[in-house]
C-alpha cells in the first residue's frame, strides 16, 4: 500500500514544519511534504496490470495506466522547485540579516 506510505511521508513533513525551529530544516520539511503529496498523486493513477502510457510498436493503449496524474505531478514538481528556490534565497537573506538560521534567536533580536 504505497499510497498509505505517501500519506505518512506527508505527515512527517508537516510534523517537521510544525516543530522545527531551523529555517533550512523547515524548507526540507516542506519538500518532504511535497514529495509525499506527489507520490500520493502518482498512486491515484496506478493500475496493477498497467504499463507506462507510452505507445510503442509492441504494446496497446488498452493497458495504459492513467496518464493525467503523472502530468499533474510534473507540474507540481516544477512548482515545488520554484517555491524551494525562492524560500532558500529568502533563508539566505535572513542569515545575512540576523547571522543565524534559528527562529528563536531571530525572535530575540
Amino acid at each position: 500500500m504505497i499510497n498509505l506510505a505517501a500519506i505518512v511521508l506527508m505527515l512527517l513533513g508537516l510534523y517537521a514544519l510544525l516543530t522545527t525551529k531551523h529555517i533550512i530544516k523547515m524548507v526540507v520539511g516542506l519538500n518532504v511534504f511535497e514529495v509525499g503529496l506527489n507520490l500520493f498523486v502518482i498512486t491515484i493513477g496506478f493500475n496493477k496490470d498497467g504499463i507506462a502510457p507510452i505507445l510503442t510498436g509492441s504494446n496497446s493503449i488498452k493497458d495504459f495506466v492513467d496518464p493525467l496524474p503523472q502530468a499533474i505531478v510534473l507540474t507540481a514538481i516544477v512548482i515545488g522547485f520554484g517555491i524551494t528556490a525562492v524560500a532558500l534565497m529568502v533563508a539566505r537573506k535572513i542569515h545575512e540579516q540576523y547571522g543565524t538560521y534559528d527562529i528563536n534567536e531571530i525572535g530575540g533580536k
Partner: peptide, 20 residues
Amino acid sequence: YVGTFNYIIVSAVGSSLYLL
C-alpha cells in the same frame, strides 16, 4: 524576510492541501 518566509511556508502548505 522572516515575514516573507512565514508567508512562503504557510501558503505553500495551503496550496499543497488544495492540490491534495
